[in-house]
């Protein structure tokens, strides 16, 4: 009996750990905010322009792409293409700072590396720690600026697309990053799209969009989710928005001409069929002809053969590369693309 009691601590530890893991997330009680109509929430979002904040954003994707094994070797000279695939399949976190006006900084926290994007007025710097290279650009006077893939900027892009094909409703009572939020639910009014609904969580107090989640009709909840894990509304230190390249950092100067993306050929005009959420975009362009062996191998791995060519199928977007050199894409099932390709 006495011997048995010596093992009690060893039995107690797992119980404490499990209890802690269950109890801690449940601690954040449901919020209590007045009900609002969708238009009021949209006004609230509009009022959040100029809010200073800093926080950590997490992005997760469950797109159903074949997962490439992560390894400790990641970043040991991997190509840009596999970096894109890795971005689509993996989870990422970034730190975002904004002074509410002309200073923004996004730090993409990679494993043993970091990519920074710093904007201060018209000055823009991009830094890549893996190559120890920086890109410097001066924005033209009237340039639009948006930080890539942060919840507020994603929300802005989404809301610009709200039209009669979208049903909008509001739920409340949730919390994101410890803040009470209104959930703006955007539901496509069509059965043909892969997008089931988009949930946009808006800080009930400041109006800042804190999280965007996209559910797929194939049953995948949160096929894509981008949201703050923690947020702080203190104005960040101005030092964060200046960048002085270190001695030894290679600096590339870029002078963007207004309206035209630098060093990119004029994109061909796309053909759009269908409407709203079920629209299909068709582009001419033979991907396979211009691919090098490494890209081709990656392409083979990600796509499957269909009678019309090869298809990349995810839970939110399908892309069809036809054998006659066209690319069709849309937030629709593969069959819709195949029908459109005929």
């Amino acid at each position: 009996m006495n011997k048995l009691s010596r093992w009690l601590p060893a039995a107690a530890v797992p119980i404490v750990v499990v209890a802690g893991a269950v109890a801690l997330p449940a601690m954040s009680a449901a919020g209590d905010v007045p009900d609002r109509r969708p238009e009021e929430v949209l006004d609230l979002i509009a009022s959040s322009a100029g809010v200073a904040f800093s926080g950590t954003v997490e992005q997760t994707s469950e797109l159903g792409l074949p997962e490439l094994p992560e390894s400790d070797m990641k970043g040991y000279g991997s190509s840009d293409e596999s970096a894109v695939v890795e971005f689509l399949t993996g989870d990422h976190s970034a730190r975002v700072f904004s002074d509410g006006a002309e200073g923004q900084r996004v730090q993409l926290l990679d494993r043993l590396a970091e990519r920074d994007l710093i904007r201060n007025g018209s000055e823009v710097w991009a830094y890549d720690s893996k190559r120890d290279e920086a890109i410097h650009a001066v924005l033209p006077e009237d340039a639009e600026w948006s930080a890539p893939a942060t919840p507020p900027d994603l929300a802005e892009a989404l809301l610009a697309k709200i039209d009669p094909t979208t049903a909008v409703s509001v739920e409340s009572g949730n919390r994101v990053a410890g803040r009470e939020v209104y959930d703006l639910i955007l539901t496509p009014r069509t059965e043909e799209s892969l997008v089931a609904e988009i949930e946009l969580s808006v800080d009930a107090d400041t109006g800042l969009p804190l999280r965007v989640e996209v559910d797929s009709t194939d049953g995948t909840d949160d096929a894509v989710s981008v949201g703050f894990r923690e947020i702080d509304y203190d104005t960040p230190s101005p030092d964060l928005f200046t960048f002085t390249p270190a001695e030894g950092t290679v600096v590339h100067e870029k002078q963007p001409t207004p309206g035209v993306a630098p060093a990119m050929p004029e994109p061909p005009e796309p053909v759009v069929t269908g409407e709203g959420w079920a629209s299909v975009v068709e582009l001419p362009g033979d991907v396979l002809a211009s691919a090098d062996p490494e890209q081709a191998a990656l392409f083979e791995q990600l796509t499957v053969a269909v009678p019309e060519g090869r298809v990349l199928s995810t839970s939110l977007v399908s892309v069809l590369f036809t054998s006659d050199g066209r690319v069709l894409a849309g937030a629709v099932p593969v069959e819709t693309l195949q029908a459109a390709a005929r």
Binding site: E114, D116, Y127, D132, A134, F243, A246, T249
Partner: peptide, 11 residues
């Protein structure tokens, strides 16, 4: 040796 550049690009 010189000042060390951190991952964020500052020394």
């Amino acid at each position: 040796i010189r000042d060390v550049t951190l991952l964020s690009g500052v020394t």
